[in-house]
Design a binder for these strands. Structure first.
Lengths: 249, 249
DNA sequence: CGCTCGGTTGAAAGGAATCAATTATAGTGG
DNA sequence: CCACTATAATTGATTCCTTTCAACCGAGCG
């Protein structure tokens, strides 16, 4: 359960034990600061933030059908969201790393459309959505950031819908994971996979056996080095080439 | 190019040639009225609406990479959104019927992430998004509706990402289309398909040959009747049964 | 130490894609 | 009005990738 080495990175918001301490990793902090809001505006955002956790491995943050009232930013750990199909098989919708927001897909129905479970020890910033929406009417920058986050998720959800080969899917998964880690200050090449092979398979819409085989082949081809859940990207360029079809860049 | 018989339906907003005539089919009209806004608020919404069109078959409404400044509600016709993969093959992202909104996925990057083309004669309501967002700060109901629309699209985009059989995909496509037509006052059983088989195939991530075969089998099994682009759903229950795995209901 | 569960490996089966050819359709121009 | 052409749709035969089925391995744990 070791976390990848953390690269030093300037914290956008004071993290020195202040009473109004805000999630330094979360998507809203950057947005608000970049809009040049004064301290009192930030304070307003703070009052509707609730730090919750820790949630330990296997604990559910919410379940499908639960009443929706808050979105949450992951502060630490990994959250898996999933639904169960008619045969009770798991369909993984996504993995959410520190700094990423969950619950945006619940707004329209006022219910969570999926389950969310902690894959390791998870800490959250929880935001009352009604309060946040209200605040957003007075903070255009916050409103804009919410629109951006929602819009972004539409595009993300569409990525996996293509008919891609197992290799492309796996490569895209690893590259995307690498980038997301990097953006949050972790290593882009040495990743700790917090999810099981089965989870990866369910997410990528592949059989677990296929995940196993593809990873092994990637390793034999010198693309990656794999040891259990530790993965090193050895040939980022070639991996990105494979992922290109999916990630479109 | 005949349209399905229109069922009489009470128009939510006066459609009697008023100067401030608003798209009676569009998602925003219901939202605003249901919030009980007075005439002046509605008027404010009207001033940022621009009725554009007609766009004829094959005309592009926007292209990937174009600068984003407006979302649009389809007033009439069908819009296809798509991207081209590295090999130049079309990946259809969606078909947009009257009353549905396009462009929400463009907000976060300020650029359209896809192409949009008219499949028949299309009329649009175009809304300047910056202006709409500004207005939304003074109309919480409008803001809420925008959040809902965005949130909804996240879920929609995720639907097709599962690994479903050709039969399930096709059934889900037809059932969803039927429901969307019905909601807008068209027949739920007799549909005119405005898109080609190839478009359907690209959307469903199947080969055109597979679409052809599945439709033929559906017909031979008495599920549907197909004649060119006219399709009649003969056994809605059984079709819905097939679609269940995808649509989750 | 042996049990269990996740992961890996191998062999076989299956569903959709691809390749190839034919038919149908709409549009064009004689 | 009717051939003629280009494009879309259909149909059949074959191939291929992934899944499924089955067995084995190996780490973690009581």
């Amino acid at each position: 359960m070791s976390t990848p080495a953390r690269r030093p990175r300037p914290s956008p918001i004071a993290d020195d034990g202040d009473e109004l301490r805000f999630c330094s990793t979360c998507a809203f902090s950057d947005a608000c600061l970049s809009q040049g809001y004064d301290k009192s505006s930030l304070a307003e955002l703070h009052v509707l933030v609730e730090h919750v956790g820790p949630f330990h491995e296997g604990m559910h943050l919410f379940r499908e059908g639960d009443e929706f009232n808050a979105i949450a930013a992951v502060r630490a750990g990994t959250v898996k969201t999933y639904v169960l199909d008619a045969e009770g098989r798991e369909q993984v919708l996504g993995f959410h790393l520190p700094g990423e927001v969950i619950g945006l897909d619940a707004i329209h129905a006022s219910r969570y459309p999926c389950n969310a479970v902690a894959l390791d020890t998870v800490m959250l910033c929880r935001f009352s959505f009604p309060k946040m929406a209200l605040l957003a009417t007075r903070m255009p920058g916050l409103q804009a950031q919410l629109f951006r986050l929602l819009s972004q998720d539409i595009g993300k959800a569409a990525l996996l819908s293509g008919d891609f080969s197992a290799d492309e899917r796996m490569a895209a998964f690893l590259v995307a994971l690498s980038r997301r880690f990097e953006r949050r200050g972790f290593s882009a090449t040495r990743l700790h996979l917090t999810m099981s092979r089965t989870d990866m398979a369910n997410y990528l819409r592949l059989a677990p056996e296929t995940v196993s085989r593809v990873l092994r082949r990637f390793q034999s081809e010198g693309l990656v080095g794999v040891d259990r859940r530790e993965l090193e990207i050895l040939d980022p360029a070639r991996l990105a080439g494979l992922a290109k079809a999916v990630l479109r860049d």
